[in-house]
Design a protein around this nucleic acid. Structure first.
Lengths: 140, 140
DNA sequence: ACATACTTTAGAATAATTATAAAGTAGTTA
DNA sequence: TAACTACTTTATAATTATTCTAAAGTATGT
């Protein structure tokens, strides 16, 4: 039994609140995802490659998928899709919006977009969230 | 050489302007997609199944994908993605928005949503389009 | 230490999509 | 029409992202 430092605390909490025991692999993934100043956008494949590159003992694909899924289901990651049949995840789970620029994703803070008019939800339904995607192209 | 009726004209034009010769298969697909009053949302798999169900001679998967792609590239179809790694297409190519309700898609006319505030595009970029997705959930 | 339950992993399975290459069809030209 | 060329269709293989499976490993409570 070793002492746990504060840095790791947060990641471990996210794992626990996702119903996951904090195993070594999961702690490393969680640390990699959340131990950063800026929002991080990634696909599971990208995450796996960048983490495994520097490791002698690789973490398996299934573990990456399982961990990312659990974190997402618990609300610690946000999922979104581009037009390439791949799931992207965002460590910024606060309500916000995105610029899409040729596959590159840039966050837009929620307060940068406000609505003058929004439609009513159909009867029996209510609005869960509103997401705006602003597609960019080059000036010429 | 047979006379072409007006109904077919539109579909054939869409094919030609997509760089596709109007073969039988393509004309039938184009007709199926565009000969309808309401906007049509579909995946290639759904399109294939619903068209091939009533046919003795099936149209191949590759032809569906090729035709849909060309129509999309030419701007006759709009592509969008949900969180299930499948491409959806929309015969409504005018700028508009969507409700997503458990995988079901409902169009929102462009004028139903207006903005009070929108961010500037990053330098060197300009805004190509703005798309809003309103996710729904059941009341209570 | 034991038992039970949860994890990891490699590899198989699946689903959506794209690529390939052979056979078919259309359009053009002589 | 005959011949030629270019474009199409198709079945099938290949690819990519993801999920499933089952065996071996690890953790936690008693």
């Amino acid at each position: 039994m070793h002492k746990m430092n504060n840095k790791n605390k947060t990641f471990i909490d996210k794992l626990r609140s996702s119903g996951l025991r904090p195993t070594n692999q999961r702690v490393e993934i969680s640390k990699f995802l959340f131990n950063r100043k800026k929002t991080f956008h990634f696909t599971v494949e990208e995450l796996k490659n960048s983490m495994n590159l520097k490791r002698s003992k690789k973490i398996s694909t299934a573990t990456f998928y399982n961990t990312v899924h659990a974190l997402k289901s618990a609300g610690h990651l946000k999922e979104f899709s581009l037009e390439n049949n791949t799931s992207y995840y965002d460590t910024n789970i606060t309500s916000h919006h995105h610029f899409f620029d040729n596959g590159k994703v840039i966050d837009i803070k929620s307060d940068k977009i406000t609505f003058q008019k929004l439609p009513e939800a159909p009867k029996g339904k209510k609005i869960k969230n509103v997401e705006v995607v602003i597609r960019l192209e080059n000036n010429n």
